[in-house]
Amino acid sequence: MTLQQTISGTVQGLGFDLVETERSAGGLLRVTIDHPWSPGMARSLPVTVEDCERATRQLQYALEVEGVDYRRLEVSSPGIDRPLRHAQDFERFEGEVVDLVLKAPIGAAAAGQVAVNRKKFRGVLQRTEIGWRIVWRDEPAAKPGQRVSAKRTPAPEQALDFTLDELQSARLAPVVDFKGRAPRGGEAG
Rank of each mutant, 00 (worst) to 15 (best):
Leu73Cys: 15
Arg71Ile: 02
Pro105Ser: 12
Val47Lys: 01
Leu29Thr: 07
Gly123Pro: 00
Arg127Gln: 12
Gly13Tyr: 04
Ser169Val: 10
Glu96Ile: 10
Ala115Gln: 11
Gln126Thr: 10
Gln146Ala: 11
His86Glu: 05
Val176Tyr: 15
Ala25Tyr: 10
Gln5Pro: 10
Asp138Asn: 07
Val148Arg: 02
Pro83Ala: 00
Val97Ile: 13
Pro36Cys: 14
Val49Phe: 09
Ala109Leu: 07
Pro140Tyr: 06
Phe121Pro: 05
Gly180Thr: 11
Gly79Ala: 01
Val31Cys: 04
Leu29Asp: 01
Leu172Lys: 03
Pro83Leu: 01
Gly107Arg: 08
Arg118Asn: 02
Leu59Asp: 06
Val176Phe: 15
Leu84Tyr: 00
Arg23Leu: 13
Pro83Arg: 04
Gln12Trp: 05
Thr21Val: 15
Phe178Met: 14
Leu18Val: 00
Leu102Gly: 02
Gly123Asn: 02
Glu20Gln: 13
Arg181Ser: 15
Val65Met: 08
Asn117Gln: 07
Pro39Gly: 08
Arg72Glu: 12
Thr2Gln: 04
Leu125Cys: 11
Glu50Lys: 06
Gly112Tyr: 03
Lys119Asp: 06
Ala62Glu: 07
Ile7Met: 11
Ala42Met: 07
Gln58Met: 04
Asp81Leu: 08
Thr153Tyr: 01
Val176Lys: 08
Phe162Val: 02
Asn117Val: 02
Gly112Phe: 03
Lys179Arg: 15
Ser44Lys: 06
Arg23Thr: 06
Gly26Ala: 13
Arg184Met: 13
Ser8Met: 08
Trp136Lys: 00
Val31Gly: 11
Val31Ser: 07
Glu96Pro: 07
Ile33Gly: 00
Ile7Gly: 10
Ala104Gln: 13
Asp99Arg: 15
Pro144Lys: 03
Gly13Asp: 04
Lys119Asn: 09
Gly185Glu: 00
Ala110Tyr: 02
Glu157Trp: 14
Arg71Met: 08
Tyr70Ile: 00
Val65Tyr: 10
Tyr70Ala: 06
Leu160Phe: 06
Leu63Thr: 01
Phe93Gln: 05
Gly131Pro: 02
Val75Ala: 04
Ser38Leu: 14
Pro140Ala: 15
Gly79Ser: 05
Ser38Asp: 13
Arg57Lys: 09
Thr48Val: 09
Arg152Thr: 14
Val65Ser: 14
Ala141Glu: 10
Gly131Asn: 02
Pro144Asn: 09
Gly95Lys: 01
Pro105Asn: 09
Glu74Asn: 08
Asp165Asn: 10
Asp51Asn: 14
Gly186Trp: 11
Asn117Gly: 09
Phe90Arg: 08
Val65Cys: 05
Lys103His: 11
Gln12Cys: 10
Leu3Arg: 04
Ser44Arg: 14
Glu94Val: 14
Lys119Leu: 11
Met41Glu: 15
Ile33Asn: 04
Thr2Cys: 08
Ala155Gly: 01
Asp34Asn: 02
Leu28Tyr: 05
Val19Phe: 06
Tyr70Thr: 08
Asp34Met: 00
Gln58Asn: 12
Ser77Trp: 05
Thr32Asn: 03
Arg137Trp: 07
Ser44Asp: 08
Ala173Ser: 13
Glu74His: 06
Arg57Pro: 09
Gly27Arg: 08
Asp177Met: 10
Leu172Glu: 08
Gly112Asn: 02
Phe162His: 02
Arg30Thr: 09
Ser76Tyr: 00
